[in-house]
Design a protein around this nucleic acid. Structure first.
Length: 401
RNA sequence: GCGUCGGUGGUAGAGUGGUCAAUUACAUCAGACUGUAAAUCUGACGCCUUCGGGCUACGGGGGUUCAAAUCCCUCCCGGCGCACCA
């Protein structure tokens, strides 16, 4: 958020940019933010995969806005809840994670998140793990907690309703999930929570519990989700995500591959552009400016925020070189051939998953020498190729040295 | 516990003895087109292969058969109904 903003502008931005829904209401949260009290707000992430993705950054950036306004923010890692699995958008029951999975996954989280929120300085963000309190609950505590919500409230959830209709199993522990997540709010005694709008139900459970147990009105701000062209969530489970661990060039390329409809939401959700600047982008598109150029700006901005200005520049250059000019860029990964045949090399370096896959790609005319544009044949792939840049499909490139 | 229906590839969902590595749709990958795309069209979509074929797969195990995703037995798991409920 630009530093020149007044406090009121900051609050307005927080309450509107990328926001989907606010509970109990925008007005009441606005009042809370304006009365000068320091609030505690958190965002929880379940460490179900090794990386954070672009969707997470939307929420983290929201937290950052609050941090800049002087509020206390908590980055909660749901190491306990991750083991149960959020039933939110899984049609089937998620495989439970082991302790080890969880530990491995959360290792990198702080590092990734630190691009977006401050973990040091005067008003440092805190990291908390919900196993700390959830792991301590006794069965009697759990029962008491469970007595705060009815089966009917649970069954109102779309997800569960659908599963009932489809005669799919619903396990009791899945009912416990919203309770556990809700208990996080109670244990940390927070004033507010930020999350994606798919998390609304879980966050509401926290509101219910906090109200019943501590008579406190927790506010909930849900942000819009970044969806792909088909309205699918860009998430870990769906596989179409931009990971924060992607190389800058991969990230840049993936964003360029977004459908044009995502340009404006992309600016709103993932960059520091103000709402009026986002409005200008929209106008530019309407005036007929080539969407590609605007999308390049978007890719650049996002890549910059996720790594650095320098990386973004490099990524952009590489993108132009490889995809526009179709020339070899120095960003193409180099691989020593070590006297391996072309197919062995690609399989061993995991560029392709099997020789069969490579054969299909070759037969489909997808593998070519990047300089001469000559298509590779199945026979030459069985030979040792000493050097040269090769293109495998749309976006796999290697330079053999 | 009894009865009944069901468990198929990343997902949904056909197939009920050979022509099934398994129709179809979605997802995925590639080619064409383009503005990087998206949409559209085309093709591919288990692994290995000396390109003849070989191997592994339809919940697990065992069996019948020249031949099983398909039939039988058994075990595991799920839905529904009934029963039980100190």
């Amino acid at each position: 958020m630009p530093l020149y903003m007044t406090k009121d502008e900051q609050i307005e931005t927080f309450l509107t940019k990328g926001v989907s829904e606010i509970l109990p209401s925008k007005d009441s949260v606005e009042k809370d933010l304006k009365n000068g009290k320091v609030l505690t707000i958190y965002n929880g992430i379940d460490p179900t995969g090794p990386t954070l993705h672009l969707g997470h950054t939307i929420q983290l950036r929201k937290l950052r806005q609050l941090q800049d306004m002087g509020h206390k923010i908590v980055f909660l890692i749901g190491d306990f809840t991750a083991r149960i699995g959020d039933p939110t958008d899984k049609m089937a029951t998620r495989v439970q994670l082991t302790d080890k999975d969880v530990k491995t996954n959360l290792k990198l989280y702080k590092k990734q998140a630190s691009k977006f929120i401050n973990f040091s300085g005067r008003n440092a963000a805190k990291i908390k793990f919900n196993s700390k309190w959830l792991g301590k609950l006794k069965f009697s505590d759990v029962l008491e907690l469970a007595s705060n919500m009815t089966v009917d409230q649970m069954l109102k959830r779309d997800m569960f309703k659908r599963r009932m209709e489809e005669e799919k199993p619903i396990y009791i522990h899945e009912f416990m999930y919203p309770l556990m997540q809700g208990y996080d709010s109670v244990a940390m005694n927070v004033d507010g929570e930020i999350g994606g709008n798919d998390q609304l139900f879980n966050m509401l459970a926290g509101r219910i519990l906090l109200k019943k147990i501590k008579n406190k009105e927790k506010f909930v701000v849900t942000v819009k989700l970044l969806t792909d062209s088909l309205g699918e969530k860009m998430g870990k489970t769906t596989g179409n995500m931009v990971s924060l661990l992607d190389t800058p060039i991969d990230m840049y390329r993936k964003i360029m591959n977004w459908s044009d409809a995502l340009i404006v939401p992309g600016f709103e959700l993932c960059t520091d552009y103000t709402m009026s600047e986002v409005g200008l982008i929209r106008q530019e598109l309407e005036r007929g400016t080539n969407p590609r150029d605007i999308k390049m700006k978007l890719s650049y901005e996002i890549t910059k925020l996720c790594s650095s200005e320098k990386d973004a520049e490099k990524a952009q250059e590489a993108f132009v070189t490889i995809f526009n000019k179709k020339e070899v860029s120095e960003e193409i990964p180099e691989i020593e051939n070590k006297n391996r045949t072309f197919e062995d090399l690609l399989v061993q370096e995991r560029i392709v998953s099997s020789k069969s896959e490579l054969r299909r790609l070759i037969e489909g005319g997808a593998v070519s020498n990047f300089d001469t544009k000559d298509l590779l044949t199945v026979d030459t792939a069985k030979k040792v190729i000493k050097e040269g840049a090769y293109k495998i499909g749309k976006n796999r490139f290697i330079k053999i040295i």
